[in-house]
């Protein structure tokens, strides 16, 4: 298999891992292995992967409350992500963060955020630091069309463009903000057009087409790395599942024909069909990948289950110093 085809195989596998992660995480929650809020990334896999394939390990990524896919795409250890959601000491955040606060600073993964839009201004800070230190790093800030309606986005984008910061505002327009469809929240459904207001490059991208996500992100990331300033990319995608495990959607916001259209444009379906069509992989070879994914996920779950809880004693000692009053 050529190096290029090998990469395609790996890309498909990564998206399948993201998908399988979200499928099993709900079961783990129902079985009591995972506590708290869980926001699934199902259907948006190509956005995170398309962006992160263009990043170096030390480039910065700011994630969201719906961030499992971002973490997997940035290369965080799958075992440690499961362990984090299970509240374990071996988790990426030592069991202190949970699903919404996956951190791995060694990989530039600067956290999910429980506040919608909470990362947008913070991300300008690592980008500012890169300019200040001239370290050549790029920051990617994932957010959603829901977050785009927080005023913070305006402040952050204005500053980023004003100072030509090396940052990509990666807006995953998944058409839902919590339970509310975006036609009820966006005066202009094309968020990328806001870039014009900040004299910034704004582009839209089919967020369900991995190849396009890779191509569009690469251009923006290269620009940022050359010091030519930020880009706002709007990934047009679809949140396949409800807001979170416990907050369901209204059926009236999920017309059957719309759901069917998006199912037909599912990023994994689109990509795997293309690979088969182009002779990169056969259906049988994809079935082998599915088995590999299943095995890796099972192994990672077991790692999480076997991992210890964080030490209460160490926690109490730490906070008695850190939060001393």
């Amino acid at each position: 298999m050529s190096k290029k085809n090998e990469q395609c195989r790996q890309n498909l596998k990564t998206m399948m891992i993201m998908r399988e992660f979200e499928r099993v995480i709900k079961d783990l929650a129902n079985e009591g292995f995972v506590d708290g809020a869980v926001h699934c990334y199902t259907g948006e896999e190509a956005c995170a992967l398309g962006v992160c394939l263009n990043l170096n390990d030390d480039d910065y990524v700011f994630s969201t409350h719906r961030g499992h896919g971002h973490a997997i795409a940035k290369g965080l250890d799958l075992k440690k992500i499961f362990a984090e959601l299970m509240g374990k000491a071996s988790g990426v955040s030592g069991g202190y963060g949970g699903s919404m606060h996956l951190f791995d600073t060694k990989l530039g993964f600067m956290g999910g955020n429980g506040i919608v839009g909470g990362g947008v201004t913070v991300a300008t800070g690592t980008a500012y630091a890169s300019k200040y230190l001239n370290d050549g790093k790029v920051t990617v800030c994932f957010f959603s069309e829901g977050a785009s309606n927080e005023g913070w986005c305006h402040e952050a984008m204005n500053m980023a463009s004003l100072w030509k910061l090396p940052i990509i505002f990666a807006c995953e327009n998944n058409l839902f903000a919590a339970t509310t469809p975006s036609y009820k929240t966006l005066a202009n459904p094309d968020i990328f057009e806001r870039a014009k207001a900040y004299d910034m490059v704004g582009v839209k991208c089919d967020g369900n087409d991995l190849d396009e996500c890779i191509k569009v992100s690469k251009k923006a990331i290269d620009r940022a790395r050359r010091g030519e300033g930020p880009t706002l990319i709007e990934f047009k995608t679809y949140r396949v599942e409800g807001h979170c495990r416990v907050i369901r959607d209204l059926e009236i916001f999920r017309p059957k024909d719309v759901v069917a259209w998006w199912a037909d444009h599912d990023p994994i379906k689109v990509y795997s069909e293309r690979l088969v069509e182009n002779g990169v992989l056969t259906k049988d070879e994809i079935a082998v990948i599915a088995k590999e994914v299943d095995a890796e996920i099972k192994e990672a779950i077991q790692f999480g289950k076997d991992a210890p809880r964080p030490s209460t004693e160490e926690f109490l000692k730490k906070i008695s110093e850190r939060y001393a009053i």
Partner: peptide
């Protein structure tokens, strides 16, 4: 200018920026 930066009237913007800058090792 980079070490004594005038900002827009964007308190959320520049304090958020400070958080990220601190994460990256600076001392805003």
């Amino acid at each position: 200018a980079l070490r004594s930066m005038d900002t827009p009237i964007s308190e959320a913007g520049f304090t958020g920026l400070c958080v990220g800058a601190a994460m990256a090792g600076l001392r805003p």
